[in-house]
Amino acid sequence: MISKIPPPGLLYIEDTPAGPGIASRLGITPGTYRKWRMAGKGPESFRLAKMVVARIEAVDAYVAEQERKALQPSADSRSPEPRVRRKFPVAA
Score class of each variant (00 low, 15 high):
Lys35Gln: 13
Ala54Asp: 07
Asp60Ala: 10
Met38Lys: 15
Met38Val: 04
Asp76Arg: 10
Leu10Ser: 12
Ser74Thr: 10
Glu57Asp: 13
Glu67Ser: 04
Ile13Gly: 00
Met51Trp: 08
Gly31Arg: 04
Ala54Arg: 01
Pro20Asn: 07
Pro73Asp: 08
Ala23Gly: 14
Ala39Thr: 07
Pro43Gly: 09
Ser74Leu: 11
Leu10Asn: 04
Lys41Leu: 15
Ile56Met: 06
Arg78Met: 14
Ala75Asn: 04
Val53Gln: 13
Pro80Phe: 11
Lys41Phe: 02
Val63Arg: 03
Tyr62His: 13
Arg86Ile: 13
Phe88Trp: 13
Pro8Glu: 14
Phe46Met: 11
Lys69Thr: 07
Ile13His: 00
Glu44Cys: 08
Arg55Leu: 08
Lys69Ala: 09
Leu11Gln: 05
Leu11Lys: 02
Gln66Ile: 05
Gly31Trp: 02
Ser24Ala: 15
Ser79Phe: 15
Ile28Ser: 00
Lys69Pro: 03
Ala23Asp: 09
Pro82Arg: 14
Asp15His: 13
Gln66Thr: 06
Glu57Lys: 09
Gly9Glu: 04
Arg86Leu: 15
Leu26Met: 10
Phe88Ile: 15
Pro8Asp: 13
Arg68Met: 05
Pro80Cys: 12
Ala75Met: 08
Ile22Arg: 00
Val84Ile: 15
Asp60Trp: 08
Met51Val: 10
Trp36Pro: 06
Ala75Ile: 05
Leu71Thr: 08
Pro17Phe: 07
Ser24Asn: 04
Glu57Trp: 02
Arg47Met: 14
Ala49Ser: 12
Val90Gln: 06
Val63Pro: 01
Ser74Tyr: 03
Leu11Cys: 07
Gly40Glu: 07
Ala92Val: 06
Val84His: 14
Ala75Glu: 09
Val84Tyr: 09
Arg37His: 02
Ala91Arg: 11
Asp15Glu: 06
Glu44Ser: 09
Arg25Ile: 07
Gly9His: 04
Gly21Val: 12
Ser24Val: 05
Met1His: 08
Lys69Glu: 11
Leu26Phe: 09
Ser79Val: 12
Leu26Ala: 11
Trp36Ser: 10
Val53Leu: 15
Arg25Asp: 11
Val63Phe: 00
Thr16Tyr: 05
Ala91Met: 12
Thr29Met: 01
Pro73Cys: 12
Met1Glu: 06
Gly9Met: 10
Ala23Lys: 12
Trp36Asp: 08
Ser79Gln: 14
Ala61Tyr: 04
Tyr12Gly: 01
Val52Cys: 08
Pro30Phe: 01
Ala92Asn: 07
Asp15Trp: 07
Glu57Pro: 01
Met1Trp: 02
Ser45Met: 08
Glu81Met: 14
Glu14Met: 05
Ser24Ile: 04
Arg34Asp: 06
Phe88Tyr: 13
Asp60His: 05
Ala70Val: 09
Arg85Lys: 12
Tyr12Cys: 02
